[in-house]
Amino acid sequence: MAGSRFIPDRGLTTRMLLTMSLLGIVYVAFIIALILVGMPWWLVALVVIGFALFQYFASDKIAMYSMGAREVSPREAPELHAIVDRLCAMADMPKPKVAVARTDVPNAFATGHNEKNAVVCATTGIMNRLEPVELEAVLAHELSHVAHRDVMVMTIAGFLGIIAGFLTQMGLRFMVFGGASGGRNNNNSPALVALAVVAVSAVVWALSFLLTRMLSRYRELSADRAAAYLTGRPSALGGALTKITGDMGRIPNRDLRRAEPFNAFFFTPAFSKSGFSLSRLFATHPPIQQRLAQLADISRQLGRG
């Protein structure tokens, strides 16, 4: 039967520690490589440390702003707050901030670098489509991310890829717009440094991308398990998954494209209906069939749906 707390997940803890350790090694190697290829140390410090601090402390605000979400009071969203209050009491955890994003994309997400700054957000699209018991299951899934601290880990892990991607773009632009000038002055050193920075950054971006994607897929399965055991209603979470996935095809492409960059933090990914997407190739979430099969197993264990 469901317990009064989110079930611990040693597999998730191990994967988070391993991912952070590997990313730490890559991070240090990245800094050393940038200096060795000729990038000034003060510029490395400015970009790397500056981005790190900004990403860590502003991640919740960036996510909220990008999704058009805002914090709501119990008076503004009494039913949503009541669900979160009940789940936090069941899980014996501090209540995070509660927010609503006014978009028809049916989804929910959790963000924040610690429990004090944590935010759980539901879109108007998901609130309009799900039954209260299904919405409760989805919010339990999101709260488990906060309780297991994998939101914080994903926030920290993600900034390395952002830095590498930024430096790759800057290096490519320098080579395109500054290469010709360097060639006329018979001084290709800046262009060679830019090329080396691009090469190093591209490798680091690829490594961080793969490591965070592997962790992301596992943490979603872990959150499904925790939510199912906490609420004792795995079928409610399965029903929410089925409904949301089915309704994604009815959402305008422009809304889905705007939501896609945040797939790693969503309850279920938002994909536009046309065009190639790396999110399909390197998924942030496990296949829905795998998630539903896991919930069916839990339902059999509990002896009810």
Score class of each variant (00 low, 15 high):
72 V>S: 07
32 I>C: 10
273 K>F: 00
270 A>Q: 04
18 L>H: 05
279 S>G: 15
140 A>E: 05
176 V>G: 01
53 L>Q: 07
74 P>R: 10
49 I>R: 01
63 A>G: 02
153 V>P: 02
297 D>I: 12
44 V>F: 04
61 K>C: 06
285 H>N: 10
286 P>W: 08
157 A>C: 12
131 E>I: 01
289 Q>L: 12
162 I>W: 10
153 V>H: 07
213 R>K: 14
109 F>H: 05
194 A>M: 06
215 L>C: 08
142 E>H: 02
14 T>Y: 14
127 M>A: 08
96 P>Q: 06
250 R>H: 13
204 V>H: 05
302 L>H: 03
68 G>D: 09
299 S>R: 01
157 A>K: 00
45 A>R: 07
261 P>K: 09
293 A>T: 11
180 A>G: 15
270 A>N: 08
227 A>R: 03
294 Q>E: 14
261 P>Q: 11
104 D>K: 12
190 P>W: 05
34 L>P: 08
110 A>M: 07
145 H>K: 11
166 F>V: 11
130 L>H: 04
6 F>Q: 04
89 A>Q: 13
94 P>L: 10
158 G>A: 04
143 L>W: 08
130 L>M: 08
267 F>T: 03
132 P>D: 03
238 G>R: 02
213 R>M: 10
158 G>K: 01
90 M>Y: 02
249 G>S: 14
230 L>I: 10
218 Y>S: 09
166 F>S: 13
148 H>S: 15
131 E>S: 08
245 T>P: 02
297 D>N: 11
198 V>F: 09
67 M>T: 15
59 S>F: 00
248 M>D: 00
298 I>V: 10
209 F>A: 11
199 A>F: 07
72 V>L: 08
236 A>W: 04
192 L>C: 01
15 R>K: 14
65 Y>G: 12
270 A>C: 12
286 P>H: 01
10 R>Q: 14
200 V>L: 05
119 V>N: 01
155 T>Q: 07
108 A>T: 06
216 S>L: 08
132 P>R: 04
152 M>G: 07
132 P>E: 01
32 I>F: 12
245 T>C: 05
114 N>I: 09
86 R>S: 14
293 A>R: 11
203 V>I: 15
116 K>M: 11
283 A>F: 01
108 A>P: 08
